[in-house]
Design a protein around this nucleic acid. Structure first.
Length: 414
RNA sequence: GUGGCUGUAGCUCAGCUGGUAGAGCUCCUGGUUGUGGUCCAGGCGGUCGGGGGUUCGAGUCCCCUCAGCCACCCCA
C-alpha cells in the first residue's frame, strides 16, 4: 500500500479505463429513456430519515440495518439515500407534479448507499439508473417500463439475462396471503430446517428458495401469492403478461418472487444474470400504487425499476477501448512551442481531437507518446517554420503547410 | 452482522523448513545530438496492507486490526 489512505470499505474509484464502459452504458440508457419520453430528474443524495422509514418500510432490512444515518448540526436525522423511488415520489409531491399531464415519466442515475458487507457486485456506495412512470395504473405502463429495461440490457449486450415476473396483488391481499403462508409453515414445522423455521415470521417467502428436500416437500403444497390475487389484480396481471407476450418478451412466471421493499403492489419483476455470482439481480422493480399516499399525497398509482450499474458492468466484463486522437503536434525545435500550442487550439476548435507534449520530451519521446495515445497523424514542427505531417499507420510523411492546416488534415488521406 | 480464503513494486506474480526482497509488464533515459510501434542496455519504483508480540534476527511464526473475495444474509 503506497498510501496510508484507502477508499472506504465498500467504495471504489472509477479510473478512466473503467469509466469509458460506464460512459457507454449511460449513453445507451439516456438514448433509450429519451426516445421513450422519460426525462431526467435529480434528487439530493440525502433525505429526511423518515422518508425512507415510511416509504421503504420500517421492517425491511434496508431500514433496519443498512442505512447510513446521521444528524446534522440542526439535529435533523438525515440518511444517505438507499434507493431512488421514495425520493422521487417526495419530489413529485413537493413540486405538485400531479398537476402535470399524467403519467409523469422520469429517469435517474446516481449513487446510492447501503451499509452491507461488501462483495463482488455489492458495494456500500453503488450506482443505479432507473425510470418511474407515475400517475397511471394501466398495465400498459407496467409493460412499457419492463420493455425498456429489456431493451437496455439487450442493446448493451448483457449475456445470460432472464426475466422473472410475479404479482403481489394489493397490500391487503398480500398481508392476508402471508398469514396463510405462515400458517402453512407452522403446520409443517417438523419438516423444516432450523433456519427456515426461525424465519417463518420474519420472511416466510424465503422458504421457497430452500435446497432442503424436506422443506421443498412442504413448499410444494404451499399456497402461492398468485393463487391469492383478487379478480381485479388477476385481470391486471393477465394484461401485463399479454402485453409482454405480444412484444415478444420472454419471462418466467414466479409466484415466489420477493422484493425487499414494502411499497410494492401488483406487478413485480426482476432481471437476473447467470454470468454473475451471488449477486445475480441486475435490475428489478414493480408497481407501487400505495407509496405516494403513504408519503402523505393523493392515491397515485405508479410503476418503475432500478438497475445496478456495477452489476451490469460486471456482467458485460468488457473494456471499452480508448479512442485515439486525430492528431498530435510534435516539436522538433523548442522554439516552436508557442506555434504548436496555437495549432493544437486551431485543430480542437475545428472539431479534431489533438494533443501536444506537455512533459518536455524529446522528439523521439513525443512520437512514442503520440503512438501510445493512438494519434492518427503527427504534425512535426521544424526549426525555421516548416512542418511535416506523418501518418502513423503507414509511416508516410510529407511536407505540410501549417497555414492551411485544416486542409492538410481533411485532404490527402495518406 | 456470522463463517471461510486471501493481501509482496502502478499491474500480474515468485520468494523452500525464519537470516534484513526478486521477475515479467508498465513508465523514464540512452543506443539513433530531429522521428513511434521491434530489439538491446540502463534507470525510477516496495517501511513485504497496518499495529503489536516471539526471536540474536520475521515477508516467512503468534495476536489484533484494515481491505478484497466466497458462502450465509440481503438486494441493484
Amino acid at each position: 500500500m503506497a498510501s496510508k489512505f484507502q477508499a472506504p470499505r465498500g467504495t471504489f474509484d472509477v479510473l478512466p479505463a473503467a469509466g469509458r464502459a460506464r460512459a457507454r452504458l449511460q449513453a445507451v440508457a439516456t438514448g433509450i429513456f429519451e426516445r421513450a419520453g422519460y426525462e431526467m430528474i435529480q434528487t439530493p443524495t440525502f433525505e429526511d430519515t423518515d422518508l425512507f422509514e415510511r416509504g421503504v418500510g420500517k421492517s425491511t432490512d434496508i431500514v433496519r440495518k443498512e442505512m447510513f444515518t446521521f444528524e446534522d448540526k440542526g439535529e435533523r436525522s438525515l440518511t444517505l439515500r438507499p434507493e431512488g423511488t421514495a425520493p422521487i415520489c417526495r419530489a413529485y409531491l413537493e413540486h405538485g407534479m400531479h398537476k402535470q399531464a399524467q403519467p409523469v415519466k422520469l429517469s435517474y442515475v446516481g449513487p446510492f448507499f447501503r451499509h452491507e458487507r461488501p462483495q463482488a457486485g455489492r458495494y456500500r456506495q453503488f450506482h443505479q439508473l432507473g425510470i418511474e412512470a407515475i400517475g397511471t395504473d394501466s398495465p400498459l405502463a407496467d409493460a412499457e417500463v419492463i420493455m425498456l429495461l429489456s431493451d437496455l440490457l439487450g442493446e448493451l449486450g448483457v449475456p445470460g439475462v432472464a426475466l422473472r415476473l410475479g404479482s403481489l396483488g394489493s397490500l391487503d391481499a398480500r398481508a392476508a396471503y402471508l398469514e396463510e403462508l405462515k400458517a402453512h409453515l407452522h403446520r409443517h414445522e417438523g419438516d423444516l430446517t432450523a433456519d427456515v423455521r426461525e424465519r417463518i415470521d420474519i420472511n416466510p417467502l424465503r422458504a421457497f428458495d430452500s435446497d432442503d428436500a424436506g422443506v421443498q416437500g412442504v413448499m410444494a403444497s404451499a399456497p402461492t401469492i398468485l393463487d391469492a390475487l383478487s379478480a381485479e389484480d388477476q385481470e391486471h396481471f393477465d394484461e401485463v403478461r399479454a402485453l409482454l407476450d405480444a412484444a415478444g418478451i420472454g419471462y418466467e412466471l414466479d409466484g415466489t418472487l420477493v422484493r425487499g421493499i414494502d411499497y410494492y403492489t401488483r406487478t413485480i419483476f426482476s432481471f437476473v444474470c447467470d454470468a454473475l455470482g451471488g449477486q445475480s439481480e441486475i435490475g428489478g422493480g414493480g408497481r407501487y400504487d400505495g407509496l405516494i399516499e403513504q408519503l402523505g399525497g393523493p392515491a397515485t398509482p405508479a410503476v418503475g425499476w432500478a438497475a445496478g450499474i456495477e452489476r451490469i458492468l460486471l456482467a458485460l466484463d468488457e473494456e471499452e477501448p480508448r479512442r485515439g486522437r486525430d492528431a498530435f503536434v510534435a516539436i522538433a525545435d523548442p522554439e516552436q512551442r508557442r506555434r504548436a500550442m496555437a495549432l493544437v487550439t486551431e485543430l480542437r476548435n475545428a472539431g479534431f481531437s489533438a494533443e501536444m507534449d506537455l512533459a518536455g520530451r524529446g522528439l523521439k519521446g513525443q512520437l512514442k507518446h503520440a503512438d501510445r495515445i493512438g494519434a492518427a497523424r503527427v504534425l512535426i514542427l521544424e526549426a525555421g517554420g516548416t512542418a511535416q505531417l506523418r501518418d502513423m499507420a503507414s509511416g508516410e510523411q510529407r511536407a505540410a503547410d501549417t497555414g492551411n492546416l485544416l486542409g492538410e488534415m481533411t485532404g490527402g488521406e495518406a
